[in-house]
Design a protein around this nucleic acid. Structure first.
Length: 301
DNA sequence: CTTCTATCCATTTTTACCTCA
DNA sequence: AGTGAGGTAAAAATGGATAGA
């Protein structure tokens, strides 16, 4: 199904993302959840390329499917005029009515009432796709009744949209209109496509972040388990002082990760002063009697 | 400050396509 | 081989929030 492509892409993205993040153990400083047009270049260089590579494959896949199944190459019918007529709802419609709904209603009305929005779009799509679109196949359908009709974008259209999205995750009205004209789409379609594209990107970014956090959680859980085990071992050693005095200090828990001082592994001393920066090694510290060179962690610094 | 317009996002609905029994 | 059900992604619609004039 279609998910196969997406699943593949996602798995690739995940693996890449994790590898990338493992080298830099921190979440993406510009998470996609809050990306904006000003920060889209970040994602362009990091995440989005992973997505786009997979999605492009998906597009190619759907395109190939479309080629095989649906579209026999046929004549090219280009009708750009209506695009402008129908597709500038923001300016023309809103001046008469108010709000976005009116624009949609107008489009629907135009499609139903002898206008040629949806139906024409099919024609336009066929024209801009690889000559695809047998006219009788889609055009004769339900375009006349004004009902919404699915508009599967052609490969070329999707490709151009993707390339544009790479450069700008958002479009200003001028760019939108130019792109719509170039692709023989309505500006509303371009706008919707970009909205959906941003949503897909964000969703995938969320999934990647979730996977990364899951990994972090697993690592921390494992680390916690290991430390708990070590604590219990040290507590057990407390019961046998002779052995304790002659043992080497543990290889872990020897360094405070924050202040990078040698920590005190004494069980008789409360752990709080251990991390104190003023006197990390109190007078009661059993390690104080051990020469520094015998402390593996301290000596390794 | 209010109103209007445009845009965005989150969510939902619709549609086309695919797989499988 | 043909067909319908179910699943999925994508396109479109909807409603709310927000910014700017």
């Amino acid at each position: 199904m279609g998910e196969r492509d997406d699943g593949l892409g996602l798995s690739l993205s995940l693996s890449l993302g994790l590898n990338q993040k493992e080298s830099t153990p921190r979440l993406n400083p510009t998470p996609m959840a809050s990306y904006s047009s000003s920060s889209h270049m970040h994602m362009q260089n990091s995440w989005i390329q992973m997505f786009q590579s997979s999605e492009r494959n998906s597009d190619v896949g759907s395109f190939l499917r479309g080629l095989d199944v649906n579209r026999a190459p046929s004549r090219v019918v280009v009708d750009v005029e209506e695009d402008a007529g129908v597709s500038s709802p923001n300016s023309t419609v809103s001046s008469v009515m108010s709000g976005k709904r009116n624009e949609r209603e107008l489009v629907a009305a135009a499609g139903a009432g002898g206008g040629r929005t949806i139906e024409d779009n099919e024609t336009e799509r066929g024209s801009s796709s690889l000559g695809g679109g047998s006219d009788d196949e889609d055009g004769g359908g339900n375009g006349d009744d004004g009902s919404r009709k699915k508009l599967r974008l052609s490969k070329e259209q999707a490709l151009v949209l993707e390339e544009t999205f790479k450069e700008h995750s958002t479009l200003n009205p001028k760019q939108k209109m130019a792109l719509a004209k170039q692709l023989n789409l309505r500006t509303r379609q371009v706008e919707v496509w970009f909205q959906n594209r941003r949503a897909r990107t964000k969703l995938k970014q969320t999934e990647v972040d979730c996977e990364y956090l899951k990994r972090c959680c697993e690592n921390l859980t494992e680390e916690n388990r290991r430390l708990q085990k070590e604590v219990s071992e040290l507590r057990a050693l407390k019961l046998s002082p002779q052995l304790y005095m002659h043992m080497k200090p543990p290889t872990t828990l020897t360094m405070c990760p924050s202040c990078e001082r040698v920590a005190v592994a004494s069980s008789s001393v409360a752990p709080a002063p251990v991390m104190s920066s003023s006197s990390p090694m109190g007078p009661m510290s059993p390690w104080a009697a051990i020469p520094l060179r015998q402390r593996p962690a301290a000596g390794s610094r």
